[in-house]
Amino acid sequence: MAKARKSRGESMLVRYLVLGGWAAVCLLPILWFLSIGFRPRTEVITPQPIYWPTFSLDAWHLLMSDWPIAQYLRNSVIAVAGSVVIDLVLAIPAAYALARYEFKGREDIGFYILSTRMMAPAIVAVPIFFLFKTLGLLDSVWALMLIYAAINLSLVTWIIRSYMLDIPKELEDAARTDGAGDLTILREIIVPACLPGIITAAVIAAIFAINEFLFTLLIASTSNAYTMSVALANFTGGSDGIIYNAIALVSFIAFVPILILVILIQKHLSRGLTMGAVKG
């Protein structure tokens, strides 16, 4: 008994060392980067790193004066929100078909949709670049919207499908005997019943869209289409070098809303990230 208690005590110590240690690994770089955002530029790159900098809003003033941050933010929001809407419109009926109907080729179609997620962006980068060039859509937020929608469509479809599978069939059968058609059932019963899944899918799709880098880098060439993600990389080059304090500040401007969204869907996150394969 005493031995058991002792080993338990030890394991508590080990447990909190491991958990606390990893928490430090996660948080310290973030806190340090936050301090970068609020220090003068002269204290960013120094022969000896400065851990207790002077507080300064230099980066903020730079962002407000020299950098069309409102424009980049607007581009991000339009492209991301638009892509999520496209995804939901396309994915909800598709997910319904995959979840509720028996038909030839269902497994293969489902797997094809899933497999588009595995395509490395670089594989399609060159053709997509030429496609949008032909369409005259280079350097446009609309092109980004279409691309983001395509990247996330598989994920959104699979997440929603997984939640639809959980809805008891009896709900639909009742409505069907009441004379409701398939589309009415989808709209009035299925969609409300799997709303948590739809929201989860939308949030995860939005995060991936905000993060997208390669396509945005190729398609956007001016502030017409620069998003937050790629505009960050725009602080490099030039005679000024990399303006780290502004980069840090922008990172946190994007981080806060994402953190809030994720906390809202926390319970569904694992299911969403595995496209429904793991029920959390």
């Binding site: 996660c26 960013v44 993060n211 937050m228 993600s229 960050l232 840090a248 990172s251 994402i258 994720v262």
Partner: peptide, 28 residues
């Protein structure tokens, strides 16, 4: 713990790349 451990994943990948570029190279 979950919220703390999640945080690194919620930064834009380009931001994370700059964090480590600064930590390793430019900021020493």
């Amino acid at each position: 713990w979950r919220i703390v451990y999640l945080m690194p994943m919620l930064f834009m990948p380009s931001a994370v790349a700059f964090i480590w570029k600064l930590a390793f190279n430019d900021g020493r």
